[in-house]
Amino acid sequence: MPLGGTLAVTAGATLLAFVVTFGIARWRKRYDTVDTLWGPGFALVALVAAPLGDGSVALRVVTALLTAIWGIRLGVHLHLRNHKLPEDPRYVRMAESAGPNPALKLFIRVYLVQAVVLWFVSLPVQFAMYGDTFGVTAWLGVAVWLVGFGFETIGDEQLRRFKADPGNKGKVLDSGLWRYTRHPNYFGDACVWWGLYLLACSSWVGAATVLSPIAMTYTLAKGTGKPLLEKGLRRSRPGYATYVERTSGFFPLPPRRVTPR
């Protein structure tokens, strides 16, 4: 199928997935159900696009496999983390301030917007399905993906174990990967998408999708990821301000020395 046709099919599949998820969210009475779809939504796009592309079989298989592994792991992680907790306060506030017909407004502001963002960020994955060869940039992409997936997976597990210990309530995790960056999971997420972008760079048209990993990285580091999370942590963790002074905000770096006040 031509690239334009694939882009249309994946757009339709993405929209359908978000509509179905919205229906499930309404049934569950939890709008944060959309968070669980975020990772698997990318896996869906990759698995739909792979058989439609006409590029290198190796490139298509590896791209779809890496995207699916990342997306499914993230979806499972978020579901296990969230399902025992109350509804995410962000969605509660949105629903309360939406006025009449909050469901429709939340669908447009949250679900429809995220569907568009997901489809746009996944463009490198879709374009990679039309690459000619599995060359140097593809191997480099796999290496960057492995670094990112390792940071994200290990960071999430270290945080899960830290939170599972009642003795750590109110404390700040500053060991393991969290000693070198305040957000190893976000850094890993960004690396995953730069790795997938490099897989798309086997063709010039794929290289033109660079705005997709830039958008993902900006969202994680400057948008709805890191800033919103840290705003809450500064209020709930007394030692977080000191942690911020000595620890890199995104890229892993050796801890800085902090002069006692």
Results as ranks from 00 to 15, higher is better:
residue 1 M to I: 15
residue 3 L to M: 12
residue 4 G to R: 03
residue 4 G to T: 08
residue 6 T to N: 06
residue 7 L to Q: 03
residue 9 V to I: 14
residue 18 F to E: 12
residue 18 F to A: 11
residue 20 V to H: 04
residue 23 G to Q: 03
residue 30 R to I: 07
residue 30 R to T: 12
residue 32 D to E: 14
residue 33 T to G: 09
residue 35 D to G: 05
residue 36 T to K: 05
residue 36 T to R: 06
residue 36 T to V: 15
residue 38 W to I: 03
residue 38 W to C: 12
residue 40 P to L: 07
residue 43 A to P: 03
residue 44 L to K: 01
residue 44 L to H: 02
residue 46 A to R: 00
residue 47 L to R: 08
residue 48 V to E: 05
residue 50 A to G: 10
residue 54 D to R: 15
residue 58 A to G: 14
residue 59 L to T: 09
residue 60 R to N: 08
residue 65 L to I: 09
residue 66 L to F: 03
residue 67 T to H: 02
residue 70 W to F: 03
residue 71 G to P: 00
residue 71 G to R: 05
residue 71 G to I: 03
residue 73 R to N: 05
residue 76 V to F: 03
residue 76 V to S: 11
residue 78 L to C: 06
residue 84 K to N: 15
residue 85 L to T: 07
residue 88 D to N: 09
residue 89 P to K: 09
residue 89 P to Q: 12
residue 89 P to A: 10
residue 91 Y to P: 09
residue 94 M to L: 14
residue 97 S to H: 13
residue 97 S to K: 13
residue 99 G to H: 11
residue 100 P to N: 11
residue 101 N to C: 07
residue 104 L to Q: 10
residue 109 R to N: 14
residue 112 L to E: 04
residue 113 V to K: 11
residue 115 A to M: 06
residue 117 V to Q: 09
residue 117 V to R: 01
residue 119 W to V: 08
residue 121 V to H: 00
residue 123 L to F: 07
residue 124 P to D: 02
residue 128 A to N: 06
residue 130 Y to S: 08
residue 131 G to A: 01
residue 134 F to K: 01
residue 136 V to P: 01
residue 137 T to V: 09
residue 137 T to I: 08
residue 139 W to M: 13
residue 139 W to Q: 08
residue 140 L to M: 12
residue 140 L to P: 05
residue 141 G to P: 03
residue 142 V to L: 11
residue 142 V to E: 00
residue 143 A to D: 07
residue 145 W to T: 03
residue 146 L to N: 00
residue 148 G to I: 07
residue 151 F to S: 10
residue 153 T to A: 13
residue 154 I to V: 15
residue 156 D to W: 04
residue 158 Q to M: 05
residue 158 Q to K: 00
residue 167 G to S: 04
residue 167 G to Q: 02
residue 167 G to Y: 00
residue 169 K to S: 14
residue 173 L to F: 15
residue 177 L to E: 07
residue 178 W to S: 01
residue 183 H to G: 11
residue 193 W to D: 05
residue 193 W to H: 02
residue 196 L to V: 01
residue 199 L to C: 01
residue 201 C to K: 11
residue 205 V to C: 06
residue 205 V to I: 14
residue 208 A to H: 06
residue 211 L to C: 00
residue 215 A to N: 07
residue 218 Y to R: 09
residue 222 K to C: 08
residue 222 K to R: 15
residue 224 T to P: 12
residue 228 L to R: 08
residue 229 L to P: 04
residue 230 E to W: 07
residue 234 R to F: 14
residue 239 G to S: 01
residue 240 Y to L: 08
residue 241 A to M: 11
residue 242 T to D: 15
residue 243 Y to V: 02
residue 244 V to N: 05
residue 246 R to W: 01
residue 247 T to R: 04
residue 247 T to K: 04
residue 247 T to I: 01
residue 249 G to A: 07
residue 252 P to I: 00
residue 253 L to K: 13
residue 256 R to A: 10
residue 258 V to E: 09
residue 259 T to Q: 14
residue 260 P to R: 05
residue 261 R to S: 14
